[in-house]
């Protein structure tokens, strides 16, 4: 049994890595194209990220003299690997995740921190003052968005445990029991608050404007990535694409786990294709609203503004969602008569 599981995990991971990199880069292309159209530009072709990665791979990879070279070279690999690992726990297109039964929402909360932490490690290992400033800013950003993110995840898991018996903390359970169907009006308002909080957290997780203080090109010359070039930069570039795809599909799995194949009388293969295309559509819509529109529409915040946004506004939003979800259960269970 263990040999079979081992084989499944290894092959699945390789397959998922190729799939995730291809989709991540394609989504990056779509993101850049839409952003360009919003600024009334033509924009790069959709294959642009593939050309960028190809070019970075043939460039020289410079390791600065005062860098900690093993950590400097190790951090991009960990960043990409942990982003792909994240996808192994997220249900894709209504199908259970590859490592189903081996981890839950709490594990994902922890896994989410690893790409950011490896970027921090790489930044500190660069030995450049810009990268150090970037790494410190990234840590501060992480500290500010982790709490509202945890509140959102826990409220949903708590609501699921209130409504169902079973493995309520696993993502496959959450995505097979759409949460919107199990709450009343107050709960729906609460869930909207939670969704908004998570959508505001996404750009910070992905280091995108307005929360890209850690990579701010115009202030600290690329921040964390300032000393990275060639192959290492390509790995971070790939990790960014994979992370965007993984986080968008996480939001889809929690908040929009609906499929459309049951509305058509179809065989299993056409149904899978339709569900998969619908899943890609949902992921790109989440990416459009959480990343593209936001990053074109607003300017970069300062680091103090990032902290106060998350600790005050977004945390309050998430707590309000939690309270509304709680009231929803209690008002439904109170005997008014």
């Amino acid at each position: 049994m263990t040999g079979e599981l081992f084989f499944k995990v290894v092959m699945g991971t390789i397959g998922m890595a190729i799939f995730a990199i291809l989709l991540g880069l394609s989504f990056k292309g779509i993101d850049r194209k839409i952003a360009a159209h919003m600024q009334s530009r033509v924009g790069p072709p959709l294959r642009q990220p593939f050309w960028d990665v190809g070019k970075l791979l043939i460039k020289d990879s410079v390791v600065p003299k005062n860098a900690v070279s093993w950590l400097f070279n190790f951090a991009p690999v960990i960043c990409l690997a942990s982003s792909i690992t994240l996808l192994l726990y997220i249900p894709i297109a209504g199908y259970g995740p590859l490592l189903q039964g081996h981890g839950d929402l709490i594990l994902i909360l922890y896994l989410l921190t690893i790409p950011a932490l490896s970027m921090v490690a790489g930044g500190f290992a660069s030995g450049s003052p810009y990268a150090t400033v970037g790494a410190q800013r990234e840590m501060v950003t992480m500290m500010s968005y982790e709490f509202p993110l945890a509140v959102a995840a826990i409220s949903i898991a708590w609501k699921m445990s209130d409504a169902f018996k079973g493995d309520v903390f696993t993502l496959s359970f959450i995505s097979s029991h759409p949460i919107w169907n199990n709450v009343g009006l107050l709960g729906i308002i609460g869930l909207l608050f939670l969704l908004l909080a998570v959508v505001i957290i996404l750009p910070a997780e992905l280091s995108k404007i307005p929360f890209d203080v850690a990579e701010a090109e115009t202030e600290i010359a690329g921040g964390l990535l300032v000393e990275y070039s060639g192959r290492n930069l390509a790995l971070f570039y790939l990790a960014d694409g994979v992370k965007t795809f993984a986080l968008s599909s996480l939001v889809v799995a929690i908040f929009f786990p609906y499929n459309i194949s049951q509305f058509f009388a179809l065989g299993s293969i056409p149904a899978f294709i339709i569900d998969f295309l619908f899943f890609l559509l949902k992921v790109s819509l989440v990416m459009l609203f959480a990343v593209t529109l936001v990053r074109v529409g607003v300017a970069r915040l300062r680091i103090t503004q990032v902290v106060s946004t998350y600790w005050i506004a977004v945390t309050l939003m998430a707590l309000l969602g939690l309270v509304l979800l709680m009231w929803d259960s209690q008002i439904l269970t109170i005997r008014w008569w």
Partner: peptide
């Protein structure tokens, strides 16, 4: 549209 981009770091 030609893939030309301004970057913030000489690296």
């Amino acid at each position: 549209r030609f893939g030309i981009k301004l970057v913030g770091s000489p690296r």
